[in-house]
C-alpha cells in the first residue's frame, strides 16, 4: 500500500481523474467514452513525441530539435505527396521515419563522437532543421487541396471504432514499454542516467547508448512529422513552432526526472494526456484558450515541486541547513 502511494503514476492518474471530474461538472458529456477516445486521439502525437523525448532525457540529455525535425520531415513527405500523388502512403511513412532518423543520427553523432553537450547540439539543430524546412519549401505551404485523399485519410481510418492514429499511438506505447522494461538496451538508458561512471564499469558504452537515444527521438519525430501534417492537413515552416517545450513539459509532468535515470512509459503517456485534456477542455467549459499557457506552466512547476520531494536523496546535506538566503 505504501509503495502504491509512492508511485507517482498513481498520483498523476488520480489528478487526471479529478480533472476529468471537475470538467464534467461544467460540461457533462466530457467524461463520455466517445469524447475521451477523441481526447486520446488528439493527444496521440504528443504522447508519441514525449516517449521519444523521455528516452533521451533518461540518458541525462535533451533533444530540443524534435519539433523542428517534425516540421522538416512533415514538409518533405507533404511535398513528395503533392508532386507524386502515386507514391503509396505507407512508403511515405517509411520515408518520414527515415528522414527523421537521419536527423536524429546527426544530433546523436555530434553528442557521441564530439562530446558536445546535447543542449548545445540540439539548440543548433533546432534552428538548422527549421531553416532547412524553409529552404526546401521556399516558404510555401502545402495545403489540403494538394494532398492526396489517401495521404489525409489513412490515419483517420477506423478500426474497431477507433481511428488508426490512436492505434499507432497504442502500438508505439507498447513498443516503448517492451523496449524500456524488457531489453538490455532499455535498461542501459536508465543505467547511464542513474550513474554513467558505474555504467562504464558495467560494460555499457555511454556515448553509443546516448547516440541510440537520439536516433530513437529522431525516428519518432519523423513519424510524427507525417502524422502531424496529415492530421492538421497543412505543411508549413511554422508548424509545431515551439512545440519542443510542450514535449518536455509532458515529460516533466509525467514525473520524468530531467537529471536522468527516472521515468516510465506510463508517466510520459499520462503527462501528455494531462496537457491534452486541459487543451481540449478549456473551450468546452468557456475558459478562454488564452488561459492554457499559464495553466500548463503552473502544472509544470507544481509537477517539479512534487517530483523533487520524491527524488530528494538522503545524506550529503550537512551544510544546507546552516545556510539561509
Amino acid at each position: 500500500m505504501n509503495a502504491l502511494l509512492k508511485n507517482r503514476e498513481i498520483w498523476l492518474l488520480a489528478a487526471i481523474l479529478l480533472l476529468i471530474g471537475l470538467i464534467s461538472t461544467r460540461y457533462g458529456a466530457f467524461a463520455s467514452p466517445r469524447n475521451l477516445a477523441n481526447v486520446f486521439n488528439d493527444t496521440s502525437i504528443l504522447m508519441i513525441l514525449a516517449l521519444g523525448q523521455m528516452v533521451v532525457i533518461l540518458t541525462r540529455s535533451i533533444d530540443l530539435s524534435m519539433a523542428s525535425n517534425l516540421a522538416f520531415t512533415g514538409m518533405v513527405v507533404a511535398m513528395i505527396n503533392a508532386a507524386y500523388p502515386a507514391v503509396p502512403v505507407p512508403l511515405l511513412m517509411l520515408i518520414a521515419a527515415g528522414v527523421g532518423l537521419a536527423l536524429g543520427v546527426f544530433n546523436g553523432a555530434l553528442v557521441w563522437k564530439l562530446g558536445i553537450p546535447s543542449i548545445v547540439v540540439t539548440l543548433g539543430t533546432l534552428t538548422i532543421y527549421r531553416g532547412a524546412t524553409f529552404v526546401i519549401s521556399g516558404g510555401a505551404w502545402v495545403n489540403a487541396d494538394k494532398m492526396s485523399p489517401a495521404f489525409i485519410g489513412l490515419q483517420r481510418m477506423q478500426m474497431l471504432g477507433i481511428p488508426l492514429l490512436s492505434w499507432i499511438a497504442l502500438a508505439v506505447i507498447a513498443s516503448f514499454f517492451v523496449l524500456l522494461t524488457r531489453t538490455p538496451l532499455g535498461r542501459s538508458f536508465y543505467a547511464i542516467g542513474v550513474n554513467p561512471t558505474a555504467s562504464v564499469y558495467a560494460g555499457i558504452d555511454v556515448g553509443r547508448t546516448k547516440f541510440v537515444a537520439f536516433c530513437i527521438s529522431g525516428l519518432v519525430a519523423g513519424i510524427c512529422g507525417y502524422l502531424w501534417v496529415s492530421r492538421y492537413v497543412i505543411a508549413s515552416v511554422e508548424i509545431a513552432n515551439g512545440y519542443e517545450l510542450n514535449i518536455i513539459a509532458a515529460c516533466v509532468i509525467g514525473g520524468i526526472s530531467i537529471a536522468g535515470g527516472i521515468g516510465s512509459v506510463g508517466g510520459a503517456v499520462l503527462g501528455a494526456l494531462f496537457l491534452g485534456i486541459i487543451s481540449s477542455a478549456l473551450p468546452l467549459i468557456n475558459i478562454s484558450p488564452f488561459w492554457q499557457m499559464a495553466i500548463s506552466g503552473s502544472a509544470i512547476i507544481l509537477a517539479v515541486v512534487l517530483n523533487a520531494r520524491g527524488e530528494r536523496r538522503q545524506g550529503r546535506i550537512i551544510l544546507k541547513k546552516a545556510e539561509a538566503i
Binding site: 517545450l245 513539459a249 530531467i258 499557457m293 500548463s296 506552466g297 512547476i301 517539479v304 523533487a308
Partner: peptide, 29 residues
C-alpha cells in the same frame, strides 16, 4: 523556486516561461 526548493533550473524555467507568457496572454489575449 530553484534555491529554496532545490529544483532543477531548466525545468523550473520551462514552467515559468509558460506561466509568465501565459499571464501576458490572459491579460492581453
Amino acid at each position: 523556486l530553484v534555491t529554496r526548493l532545490g529544483l532543477p533550473s531548466i525545468v523550473v524555467t520551462i514552467g515559468t516561461m509558460s506561466l509568465f507568457r501565459g499571464v501576458a496572454f490572459i491579460i492581453l489575449g
